[in-house]
Design a protein around this nucleic acid. Structure first.
Length: 422
RNA sequence: GGAGGAGUGUCCGAGUGGUUUAAGGAGGCGGUCUUGAAAACCGUUGUACCGCAAGGUACCGGGGGUUCGAAUCCCUCCUCCUCCGCCA
């Protein structure tokens, strides 16, 4: 959520910032609601002050054995006026809140301005795409051929956009989760967290998935639960409505969860293979830090994600997303893209965002800069470290051999127990 | 799922309709005393919103209601505890 005071005091800055990402801020509606709310607030608070003062007087008169019926009658009308105003204010606040919850974040000044992904900026690339002396297969062809992926039975037991991983495939998936968590906890200083996969509405609102993206989420009945679309939601909300102390920061969490996405708007896209599934595994990195450190932490976060690909010796590149391509809550976002031979291009495998105080304001996550000082909002960041299914796909494709077997990356051999999957 | 109990500030904890601000204690911070520390004593101690300010308003798990006036009474929801049932 944007700072309502910023909108009030620097309206042209807010409008210009959001215009860069193609969003038009409804300034007229905002101003009308905000001004009316404040006007009524002043009015009702004056009335409440009167009521408080007079009610104490009533107590005093009654204790002294006097008759207070005249002022009590007068106060009845004041009470009615207060109730009416309180109702009006509540309604105005609801409307204002609904409006503000649907306003995306303002891009950071270092983000290139652009309408779509064609304006994303290449930051760096690592590794050389392998040259094959045979026609490389796609990961799903390899997986089905090895008997480690079963799409037909997945369709039978669940439906489209699901896969059953079997034998070495299942083991590879599990090995990658362990490998990623081990690297981030023992080499990058993250604390491992294993959160619930179902969360409440307040958590989904806190990180920005709701109210705007309701149709992308799986809602569970009975109960008011949502299945997590990413571990970002439960992990960021760990500190919702908390005031952290400055010496706790920065906080680094690494969490594995399955992720569940309805993929409502992506019919027909990536229907083959395991690139886009309703359920996938992901190790997520989440940081809470002081505002002045968030951009430094952002760079470190991207490097932590990249480190996994380097250890796996998978070629990748880092892209800085332009204003039109970054997510709703992000101020700045890098995508890490891994080389996939069958696509003959790089595909997103990690998305690393700095949300500044956008999520912290929604989720009310603050810290005290110094003992006794006023609390301020923290900055939150997160990034995939990495998407496990896509990593499986990248390994199968980049490490495939002509006979259909797949060489296991060196760092995974102790996790899996074989050198080659055949 | 059934029965009972509870939720108060950083923490413990008192408070079942009114008289200045939620008593008291602990902890934190500042001070006095002391060579220094401890003890003792004194002071101070949350969050948010509105307002140029003085100041005001709200918050006793959440929401709603009764009343001139609610931490206190009523309704509803949530969470935790005890017992019973079911269960990986």
């Amino acid at each position: 959520m944007l700072d309502i005071k910023l909108v009030r005091t620097q309206p042209e800055q807010v409008v210009a910032g959001l215009a860069k990402r193609g969003f038009q801020f409804p300034m007229e509606t905002f101003t009308k609601l905000d001004e009316e709310r404040r006007r009524k607030l002043v009015e009702v608070e004056q009335l409440k002050n009167k009521r408080n003062t007079v009610s104490k007087e009533v107590g005093r008169i009654k204790a002294a054995g006097g008759d207070a019926s005249a002022i009590i009658q007068e106060m009845q009308q004041v009470g009615e006026a207060i109730q009416q105003l309180d109702n009006d204010i509540r309604q105005l606040e609801d409307e204002l809140n609904r409006l503000m919850l649907e306003i995306p974040n303002i891009p950071h000044e270092s983000v290139p301005v652009g309408k779509d992904e064609t304006k994303n900026k290449l930051i760096r690339s690592w590794g050389e795409p392998r040259r094959f002396d045979f026609e490389p297969k796609s990961h799903d062809e390899i997986g089905v051929g090895l008997g480690i992926m079963d799409f037909e039975r997945a369709a039978k037991i669940s439906g489209a956009r699901f896969v059953v991983m079997k034998h070495w495939g299942a083991k590879l998936e599990r090995a990658l989760v362990n490998f990623m968590l081990d690297v981030h906890t023992s080499e990058h200083g993250y604390t491992e967290v294993f959160p619930p996969f179902l969360v409440n509405r307040a958590s989904m609102t806190g990180t920005g998935q709701l109210p705007k993206f309701e149709e992308d989420m799986f809602k569970v009945t009975p109960g008011d639960y949502y299945m997590v679309p990413t571990a970002e939601v439960p992990v960021t909300n760990l500190h919702r409505d908390e005031i952290l102390s400055a010496d706790q920061l920065p906080i680094y969490y690494a969490a594995y969860t399955a992720c569940f996405r309805a993929e409502a708007g992506s019919a027909g896209r990536d229907t083959k293979g395991i690139i886009r599934q309703h359920q996938f595994n992901k190790v997520e990195l989440v940081k809470f830090c002081k505002p002045e450190e968030s951009y430094m932490e952002h760079e470190k976060l991207v490097n932590d994600a990249c480190k996994i690909l380097e250890k796996l010796k998978l070629p990748y590149r880092v892209m800085l997303l332009c204003t039109g391509d970054q997510g709703f809550s992000a101020a700045k976002c890098y995508d890490v893209e891994v080389w996939l031979p069958s696509f003959n291009t790089y595909r997103e495998i990690s998305s690393c965002s700095n949300f500044e105080d956008f999520q912290a304001r929604r989720a009310n996550i603050r810290y005290r800069p110094a003992p006794g000082a006023k609390p301020e909002f923290v900055h939150t960041l997160n990034g995939s470290g990495l998407a496990v299914g896509r990593t499986v796909a990248a390994i199968l494709e980049n490490y495939q051999n002509e006979d259909g077997s797949v060489t296991v990356p060196e760092v995974l051999r102790e996790y899996i127990g074989v050198d080659v999957i055949r």
